[in-house]
Every structure is written in structure tokens, then in C-alpha cells.
């Protein structure tokens, strides 16, 4: 299981890009943190989610 934004999900073995494709996130408007470290955008396609990972997807909305 992988914890994503506080929810345990059965997505271990998927890459971050594969997981994001199943969601409504716009990849141009997010930052992804995994186990306390930023995942560079260029590595979404090759970073495989592991059992026990803790991931936070920060979504930005407009306004400022």
C-alpha cells in the first residue's frame, strides 16, 4: 500500500506518471513529494511507487 495525501491506496508497482494518469490532476499544476523529498517532474515516468511509500501531491490553484 502507498499513502497518497493521507489515503492508503493499492498502487505499489505503478510509476508516478501511471498513477497521475488515473487522477484529475493537471501535471503542470502540481508538485509531488515522496518520503520527504521532491520528485523532479522529469522522473515521474520512471519513479516506481513502493509499498510503504508516503506521497503528497500538492495541487496549485490560481489567485494571488
Amino acid at each position: 500500500m502507498v499513502k497518497i495525501n493521507g489515503t492508503e491506496l493499492n498502487v505499489s508497482g505503478k510509476t508516478i506518471a501511471e498513477y497521475l494518469a488515473t487522477t484529475d490532476y493537471n501535471a503542470m499544476r502540481i508538485a509531488v513529494e515522496r518520503n520527504g523529498e521532491i520528485v523532479p517532474k522529469a522522473q515521474y515516468a520512471e519513479t516506481v511507487l513502493q509499498d510503504g511509500d508516503s506521497v503528497e501531491i500538492v495541487n496549485f490553484v490560481g489567485g494571488g
Partner: peptide, 25 residues
């Protein structure tokens, strides 16, 4: 702009990771 926000946050966290960063959304 939401995309500009994400660009800056990703950029700072990747390239200037010793800085403190305070963003807004």
C-alpha cells in the same frame, strides 16, 4: 497563475533545496 506557482515550487525544491520556501494556493 497556478502553472507559474508549480514551476517555481518544483524549481526551488529541485535546484535550491537548502532554501526555505513559502508558497500559497
Amino acid at each position: 497563475d497556478a502553472e507559474a506557482k508549480a514551476m517555481l515550487v518544483n524549481g526551488v525544491l529541485e535546484k535550491l533545496h537548502m532554501k526555505y520556501l513559502i508558497a500559497a494556493s
